[in-house]
Design a protein around this nucleic acid. Sequence first.
RNA 1: GGAGGGGUACCCAAGUGGCCAAAGGGAGCAGACUGUAAAUCUGCCGGCGUAAGCCUUCGGAGGUUCAAAUCCUCCCCCCUCCA
Length: 329
Amino acid sequence: MVPLAAEVCNGFLIMSFGAAPPILFVIGPTGTGKSALALQVARELDAEIVNCDSRQVYADFPCITAQPSAEEKARCAHHLYGFLPSTKSMDAGKFVRMAQDVLADLQSRGKLPVLVGGTGLYMRSLVYGLAPIPDIPQDIHERILTLCQEQGPGKLHHRLQDEDPDTASRLHPHDWQRITRALEVYAATGRPLSWWIRMHPCDQPRYAAKSIGLWSDLEVLTPFLQARIENMCAQGAVQEVEQAWRRCPDESVPGWSGIGCWELLQAFLGRWSLEEAKRAWLKNTRAYAKRQLTWFKKEPSIDWWSPGQDISIVQAVKDWLGHSGVGTK
RNA sequence: GGAGGGGUACCCAAGUGGCCAAAGGGAGCAGACUGUAAAUCUGCCGGCGUAAGCCUUCGGAGGUUCAAAUCCUCCCCCCUCCA
């Protein structure tokens, strides 16, 4: 796929493609076997796998975040896994920029990108784009965060009602993370967040995305999540935490907030027993899976399957590619 | 056998006459979410009901009172100490 035309629109370069390039998503809650399915698809089609998960980017936690093994990576090219130090943060904007580069590369080589992951926001941002809000300067970010700590989110919400009433009206006064984000955007750009969104509604897909969803109800999923935790511990999750702590002994850093990482760290630091840590790990994983289900439920046009139907799914993907006429060997 | 402490909703736990279907926390359930998203936040959470409301709850059985989770009597269980 090669851009046919480039046009300037509102000062931003918009690439328009002759046809939206095809990409495949494999999504669903954690622990449903997305990675294995993606590998299966990649083996049968000329595809490469691209991470679409906010946690599998961290280099320190390959086991706990269930990144592909060396053997799996040898079998098929994997992109955007395990490259980020724990001190660095990830966000949807960075992800979209990186993923776009990878996709462009794959398309130029005629490979089908298979995006695998559970981060709904990243998936949506990649397909529909994000308002082109510039990165917020660190000093502004820190200033507003400090303000929030000192004054509390309620005060800031009040301030947001002046600066960006539209955003304020849709945010709960306790939602400090989104409130500070909105204030940052205004402070850094002089425009309210709602203005950016109005100018760039991001309601048109930029790729011909096919989404395979692996659905599993929580009750069904829970025993698998439990087993996976035990499995991860057997695979060296505890040692992974020890090593990560040696490299980065600062809990407040982004990498440590991953589910399982933080809980095991509590055990490693002697605050919890290993059993307590595992219990919290499972509970938090379950809650996370539930949030994922809630998100994906309302995501449009996902082709839902039950876990374990990989062969039929591969066939469905082939049919889709046949119809779209691109990307097959 | 004696002395003391205690039994409250799925769990922990506050409540010592009316403002109590009962604080708070946890768990559970549902949801929101355009750059921290494995994050952040919200709602529900005895039963029936859209609601007003009705019904059944504070170990059990009686009693006092206009009114009891709260006071009295007896009984059952648990814990600590003394023997």
